[in-house]
Design a protein around this nucleic acid. Structure first.
Lengths: 336, 336
DNA sequence: TTGTACGCGTTATCAA
DNA sequence: TTGATAACGCGTACAA
């Protein structure tokens, strides 16, 4: 092990070695006040020789801010939080900020506990990551620091909520299929109680209506977010609407199941039926047979955006309302 | 927003309201020293009324420890790190410890940067999460605090490394298949340059040999960790060894692909060919057709164990060497 | 039993 | 240009 904690080198050590006072050493290191060039050089050399690292705790105590933020997730194991977290962590570390991670597991008691803990640690702000694009109780009233909500909508419209643009994503998918001359487009998606599923289904309906089209099978097929449901629903859809020539799926797992069933039924993908998935979860989308055209949510970017907004809020320029992050169409063989 | 940061309530406020000195308030709140019961009650009530939260920074400054640990991941988006992290975060929060999360993205420069940052924040220890069971450069020499390595082997044998028991997991799988009277067992797995793939393949060989059996097809089939490879390899294996009645796969994606191809080829799963996967990645294993029997790595438990060991090290009882965490067989329909 | 006083490592003010 | 000194909030000898 390196130096023991008790022998940690402090500003005092640097000052002593450079032959100056602690105050001067501090100024030299932080480029503050008037310090003679020669003095500064001496101090910096001493600091380097001792591998001096300022104690962030002490800095935070006097500065009143810690350059640390609390990241509160509802359900971390859901796969959406992870890219968001990754984007946020990266953006924060670029700004020399650290991330304190807390996973509430959807439990209000844990959540409150974490909030207290984080506040006791004097975090400068919060990023709250939801587990769906749906509404989430606002914490802001209890916080003395700014918060940004990501992948959820805060119940308080005065907060800033960053969500994925579900309607826009659905539009991308349908317009892509229409550009391929598909006229009989079905929609197989997740449970109706998911706002994302509802918003996308509504957008599908609207975009088709703009061209005087209606949904193959008449209605969207709502089920689970699983391959199993995709396999089942595809059979149902083909039975009810044999003319179907394209299927827009609520996620990549469903799409993967749909592809399996269509193949089983002897329909070629994409020749007979084109498929568009959702989420661009590579492990499913790229490894599907055939690889899936899908909608990417730009989740990492969502995390980055959250950080940008949090910084703005820290500087006194908070935004409010719901901001929708655009999606991106990723074309692969299932529509090629 | 709640109270502004500048109006944060301090121990002094509590003391004033309780009509005692700061020292007495501190003792009362921390159950330290001799404080009259009545006084303590007064202090506690005052603290509650003001929602007093001790400033952890100040506590850390005087105590020399922060009750925070640094969690360093190599590749966070790989799915293995996440359950480990979840287990560790949960165990730590049970001990009132916080987690500073840093993802190095496999980059040495980022890694060093993060280590400096975390040390500057005076973390009490490190948990280093690797991205495979393979060797990883030891950091310990540069650290003034303990570190535990998880899902990787530190290059320094004096460190403590927690890994998954690949040989044991493979043994579970093969013994399960043999208990089902399968005699012609094949093995389709990932790239040979993965230690996990090699260790498991070796164990498969050993366990079969104990019963005088050999691998169907003669050799393990090494490829990618993908469904695509599973689909391909299954066809190869059935062609070379038509008598195959069981396939042990290196992960659940491969197993899922294998199941698809076997079905395409008209072999029933599990009646004609039983399948065992690896990882118990629910989204693949439970949603497969048929649902997969598989090996669970107990990754959350691995995270918990890491925390236990880190605490032991913090208390001066560090362990060393490589500790293998046992796996668990999860039986589903693919062998039922 | 209670309170005074000091120290933790840093930054900022102001006098020298 | 430099340095003594006072914060920041808390814990803890030690004195009262």
């Amino acid at each position: 092990m390196g130096r023991r904690r008790s022998e940690a080198v402090t500003l005092g050590d640097v000052a002593k070695r450079a032959g100056v006072s602690i105050a001067t050493a501090s100024k030299a290191i932080n480029d503050r006040g008037e310090v003679a060039a020669a003095t500064r050089a001496r101090v910096l050399r001493a600091a380097a020789e001792l591998s001096f690292q300022p104690n962030v705790l002490a800095q935070g105590l006097v500065a009143g801010r810690t350059r640390a933020i609390g990241l509160l997730t509802d359900e971390f194991d859901g796969r959406f939080a992870i890219p968001i977290l990754l984007g946020a962590e990266n953006a924060l570390s670029n700004q020399e900020m650290s991330v304190l991670l807390c996973d509430t597991r959807g439990d209000a008691i844990r959540r409150n506990h974490y909030i207290r803990t984080l506040l006791a640690r004097q975090v400068d702000g919060f990023i709250v990551v939801g587990d769906s694009n749906d509404v989430r109780t606002s914490l802001t009233a209890d916080l003395p620091v700014p918060a940004v909500y990501v992948y959820c909508r805060s119940s308080n419209p005065d907060d800033l909520s960053l969500v994925s643009d579900d309607a826009g994503g659905a539009r991308l998918a349908i317009e892509h299929l229409m550009a391929l001359q598909r006229k009989h487009i079905g929609h197989i998606t997740g449970p109706q109680h998911y706002r994302a599923a509802r918003d996308r289904a509504a957008a599908v309906h609207a975009v088709l209506a703009e061209q005087g089209l209606t949904l193959a099978g008449g209605q969207p097929l709502h089920g689970e977010w699983s391959q199993r449901w995709g396999r089942h629903a595809a059979r149902v859809l083909v039975a009810t609407a044999p003319e179907v020539d394209a299927i827009f799926c609520g996620n990549d797992q469903i799409a993967s199941g749909v592809a399996q069933s269509l193949t089983d039924l002897g329909r070629r993908v994409p020749d007979d039926v084109a498929i568009v998935g959702y989420d661009n979860w590579e492990i499913f989308a790229a490894d599907c047979k055939p690889p899936l055209t899908t909608i990417d949510l730009n989740l990492q970017q969502l995390g980055t955006t959250a950080v940008t907004h949090l910084f703005a809020a820290l500087e006194g320029n908070p935004a409010t309302g719901v901001v929708r992050q655009p999606c991106r169409l990723v074309v692969r063989e299932s529509t090629a």
